[in-house]
Amino acid sequence: MRDSNLPEPELLKTVLQPLLEDFQYWFARSRSFLETEELSFMSQHEQSDLLTQVKKAQEEVNTAKMLFTATGGQVGIDMATLMPWHQLVTKCWNVAMRFRSQQNSWQHKDDI
């Protein structure tokens, strides 16, 4: 999978930089969503807990990106760090899909 023509720092910049930007984007969207929407299928405590997890992950990603930038792309990130972020993004996507599905079903009921 590794392009042997790319030096290690360039490979990190090619793969890790866009990945960190994606995490920043999705956590920002998730945070905004959780701060503005009332989710009838989650308790307030569950929603607040998920929001807290997103805020913590945002801080971690921002720190990782700052270190990555400060070192000129010389620092990688362990998979043990990335996997919880990926799992949290997936969890947020699932919550958003359930919310949209619920919104759509309510709209269809209104149309009848």
Rank of each mutant, 00 (worst) to 15 (best):
E21M: 11
F41T: 02
V95I: 04
K91N: 09
I77E: 00
S40P: 05
L16K: 05
E35Q: 13
A28Q: 14
G73L: 02
L12R: 15
N62W: 10
A80D: 04
L6G: 03
D78R: 06
F23A: 05
L19H: 13
E46P: 02
N94W: 11
D78T: 05
V61K: 01
D111E: 10
M66T: 07
L88Y: 02
P9M: 11
E59S: 13
F33N: 03
Q87P: 01
K56V: 10
E10Q: 15
T63F: 07
E10W: 06
L19Q: 15
Q24T: 14
H86R: 15
T90W: 10
P18H: 08
M97S: 09
A96E: 15
T81L: 07
E35S: 08
Q74L: 11
S105M: 13
S43H: 02
V89R: 01
N104W: 15
A57L: 05
R100S: 08
Q44T: 07
N94T: 10
R31N: 04
L39W: 08
E35F: 02
F99L: 05
E38V: 08
L34C: 03
S48P: 03
I112N: 08
R29C: 12
E59N: 12
E10V: 07
V54Y: 01
L82R: 08
F23V: 11
Y25K: 14
S48I: 06
F99S: 07
L50F: 03
D111N: 08
V75D: 01
E46F: 03
M42S: 04
L19S: 06
V89A: 04
K56H: 10
L11M: 09
P18L: 01
M1F: 13
K91S: 04
E46V: 01
S48N: 11
Q102P: 03
N104E: 14
M97A: 11
P84G: 05
P18N: 06
S48R: 14
W26P: 00
F27I: 01
Y25G: 04
K91R: 15
R2N: 12
P84D: 08
T14E: 10
L12V: 08
L19K: 14
N62I: 12
Q17W: 09
A64D: 00
Q102G: 06
N62A: 15
N104P: 05
Q47P: 01
R100C: 06
M83Q: 14
V95N: 00
F27G: 01
K55H: 06
K91I: 03
S4R: 13
N94P: 05
W85C: 03
M66H: 08
K109I: 12
T36C: 04
W93C: 07
C92W: 00
L88F: 01
R31C: 07
